[in-house]
């Protein structure tokens, strides 16, 4: 105790093992041994150090001993007295997190990474996953969603068998001429009053057409135009890609949220859904391009799609939340594509 250099120890609090009893104490090294000095001449050799807690912000650092007792010091205490043990717990992260330049760089890095993921990463991963998804899985998903639809909103069609056969063969003939390469198409007819004139494609090649659409169409070319558009979705595997993209966005959002916040979680999920919508705008344009090409290849009128789009648009243009890009914009684009040689 007479040598001041040696007696300068680490001031902190000593937590006895197995109870909330706490005392101020000094941890110091004497003749190579670590001593806990509790004052009043009460001194004991420190037990083996089991762990030194990592530095996070400015929370206290705990030196935990193997017998369950612990010694707590301020976050910025010099742990040199512990000897080699302190070296193992160099708080690199803590220094990075406290350095404003590093934090600024991380912020820029995060914004760039997130933007890159959003624009390229997630769509590319979704495209890759969709491409390698086994046909059996796609067929199974297709069948499952068809079953769900049939149970919920679909009713038996009123379209005659002869008319169905005629449209099926015209559809097959068109895809044949257009060099279609997706899963084998399967055209289904159903009555679905709740969704009006509509058509949609399931991932495995099922294209569903409502009776309402057949009523709305004034020529067969208009029906086939819509079918060609849906075949475009199937060939490019849009359904699957959308599924995977939504999943990817959800995962990334979860990481950014990082902590439970009820509202933020909900909003993150909604944002995932919005993301799906903006993908599907690109998908719609791509399907339109394919539709026009297929109609041309089959020697049909490519503008028929634009015409029925106009009428579909009037049917429900309350589409604040609709996934289809502005109908006018799409029609103009179709007309432009139709004029191209």
């Amino acid at each position: 105790m007479s040598d001041p250099g040696q007696s300068q120890g680490l001031r902190g609090r000593f937590f006895a093992q197995g109870a909330t009893t706490v005392r101020n104490a000094v941890l110091r090294r004497e003749a190579g041994t670590l001593i806990v000095d509790l004052g009043d001449g009460e001194r004991r050799a420190a037990p083996t150090i089991a762990e030194v807690s990592e530095r996070v912000g400015r929370i206290p650092v705990q030196i935990r001993f193997s017998d369950g007792s612990a010694f707590e010091v301020p976050w910025d205490a010099d742990l040199a007295v512990l000897g080699h043990v302190s070296g193992a717990h160099e708080a690199v992260l803590n220094r990075v997190e406290r350095n404003w330049m590093a934090v600024a760089a991380a912020t820029v890095g995060l914004v760039l990474t997130a933007a890159a993921l959003y624009v390229w990463g997630v769509p590319a991963a979704a495209r890759g996953l969709a491409a390698v998804t086994p046909a059996a899985v796609v067929t199974a998903i297709d069948a499952a969603s068809r079953e769900t639809f049939e149970r919920s909103i679909l009713q038996p069609t009123t379209v005659s068998q002869a008319r169905q056969d005629q449209l099926r063969s015209a559809f097959a003939d068109m895809l044949d001429k257009a060099g279609y390469q997706g899963p084998p198409p399967r055209l289904l007819f159903a009555s679905a009053p709740s969704i009006g004139a509509n058509a949609f494609a399931l991932p495995g090649g099922t294209v569903l057409v409502t009776d309402g659409l057949l009523t709305l169409a004034s020529t067969d070319d208009e029906i086939l135009g819509v079918l060609a558009h849906e075949a475009g979705h199937v060939q490019a595997r849009h359904g699957l890609r959308q599924l995977y993209a939504a999943l990817g966005i959800y995962v990334v959002m979860g990481m950014i949220g990082g902590d439970p916040g009820h509202l933020a979680d909900t909003v993150a999920t909604q944002a995932g859904a919005l993301q799906m919508l903006s993908y599907s705008r690109d998908f719609e344009r791509e399907a339109d391009r394919y539709g026009v090409a297929a109609m041309k290849a089959a020697g049909r009128d490519p503008l028929a799609l634009a015409r029925i789009l106009g009428r579909l648009g009037k049917q429900d243009d309350s589409s604040l939340w609709s996934s289809h890009p502005d109908t006018a914009e799409r029609r103009a684009e179709i007309e432009r594509l139709a004029k191209e040689p």
């Binding site: 996070v56 912000g57 992260l93 990075v96 997190e97 406290r98 350095n99 404003w100 590093a102 934090v103 991380a106 912020t107 890095g109 995060l110 990474t113 990481m255 950014i256 990082g258």
Partner: peptide, 10 residues
């Protein structure tokens, strides 16, 4: 906390 959070997320 921002520093800790941003490093966590990145």
């Amino acid at each position: 906390y921002f520093g800790i959070w941003i490093v966590n997320v990145l």
